[in-house]
């Protein structure tokens, strides 16, 4: 049982001459927390896109929770992502014109979660993230960056995922907020027991995680060869 299992994955951006990724093998166990280190432009985001099924590859295999993503239709992959994978980005995690509650409900809706369950889930997540419950009625773009990132954690966990993919989620935060953010993220992860892949260039966060992986070790294409699209 693995959360992620990648073998002989190659990915070339449309129009690019050389592949961005060539990953012979990479695995994440269920419930494992992995720190994926890589400089910007090293293909981290591309890898996360492939793991989440937003991008699909024709060469190699990407299995998430033992499901071969390439074998799912686009619609099924989207549904699979909604139900099993939570994603946190560096910034712009929330639909700015919706309220915090609206953002959480929208994510829950894509996983066809019952409204009552969503409301309970939203309240307990907001509490666990040390946010004021009144924030649920606030428009997302009225929140500070730190608050937005914490709401992004709530959004990622709203559908009780089995895997969290975080793409440089702390690079917009200052040092204090950054550590606080990672601790909150990991404490919620622990209580739910889901796996996490945390991609960052910031080595100082590496010690929070069970396993540390450098992208350059799993990717045969070297960063300087990449032309990032």
């Amino acid at each position: 049982m693995t959360a992620i299992s990648i073998s002989s994955l190659k990915y070339t951006w449309p129009g690019a001459a050389t592949p961005t990724l060539d990953v012979p093998e990479f695995e994440v166990a269920r419930g494992e927390s992995v720190f994926l280190r890589g400089a910007s432009g090293s293909g981290k985001s591309t890898l996360l896109n492939l793991m989440s099924g937003i991008l699909a590859t024709s060469t190699g295999s990407v299995k998430v929770l033992d499901v071969e993503l390439a074998e799912l239709s686009v619609r099924k992959r989207d549904r699979f992502r909604a139900e099993h994978i939570g994603i946190v980005f560096q910034q712009f995690n929330l639909i700015p014109f919706l309220t915090v509650g609206g953002n959480l409900r929208l994510a829950a809706r894509f996983a066809h979660q019952a409204n009552r369950e969503t409301d309970q889930q939203a309240r307990s997540l907001v509490e666990a993230l040390q946010l004021h419950p009144d924030l649920l009625e606030q428009r997302a773009d009225r929140l500070s960056v730190g608050q937005q990132q914490r709401v992004a954690i709530a959004r990622a966990f709203i559908n009780k995922p089995d895997l969290i993919l975080a793409d440089e989620p702390t690079s917009a935060l200052d040092a204090d907020a950054r550590d606080h953010f990672v601790k909150l993220l990991l404490s919620i992860r622990e209580s739910t027991g889901c796996a996490i892949v945390f991609a960052s260039h910031d080595d100082s966060l590496a010690d929070f995680f069970e396993r540390r992986v450098a992208l350059s070790d799993i990717n045969k294409i070297k960063a300087r060869e990449l032309i990032h699209v």
Binding site: I54, R75, I95, N159
Partner: peptide, 16 residues
């Protein structure tokens, strides 16, 4: 652009 990408990231089908 980012808003639309985000819908898909959180599991919206493109027809959404």
């Amino acid at each position: 652009r980012r808003e639309l990408a985000l819908y898909r990231a959180i599991g919206a089908h493109p027809s959404f």
